[in-house]
Design a binder for these strands. Structure first.
Length: 103
DNA sequence: CTCTTGACGCCGG
DNA sequence: TCCGGCGCCAAGA
């Protein structure tokens, strides 16, 4: 159960849940779409409560993810068909999501 | 309130 | 390409 949390945390989790399978968003993109905070802050939120959402759909801008999670992430990417290299780097050009409000 | 930590991003060397 | 340094913000101690 999720107890009351900051508004920023709520928005980050809501957006991450909207990312379609097979697609990804960078930490910085999440902050940009919300028009609040920066990648660093998004990472802080996911580190604390990311377990409740598809956290593997949020990666660094270069398509990599922290070493501590790359193994688990690759498994999810394989199941969802997210384009990625065997080393654990998502092909951003092909997997980047347009966002909830495609212009 | 201040200080530290962290699943980031950009620029240099 | 691989570091190292610095700035960014949110949350916790």
């Amino acid at each position: 159960m999720r107890t009351l949390r900051g508004e920023f945390t709520e928005r980050v989790l809501d957006l991450v849940e909207q990312i379609p399978p097979g697609k990804v968003l960078s930490y910085g993109e999440v902050a940009a779409i919300l028009e609040q905070g920066f990648g660093r802050a998004v990472g802080t939120v996911l580190a604390r409560e990311g377990a409740a959402v598809p956290w593997w759909r949020v990666v660094r801008k270069d398509g990599t993810i922290t070493e501590q999670l790359v193994q688990r992430a690759v498994e999810h990417w394989a199941v969802e068909g997210t384009p990625h290299s065997p080393e654990g780097r998502v092909d951003m050009a092909a997997a980047l999501w347009n966002g909830p409000y495609p212009t």
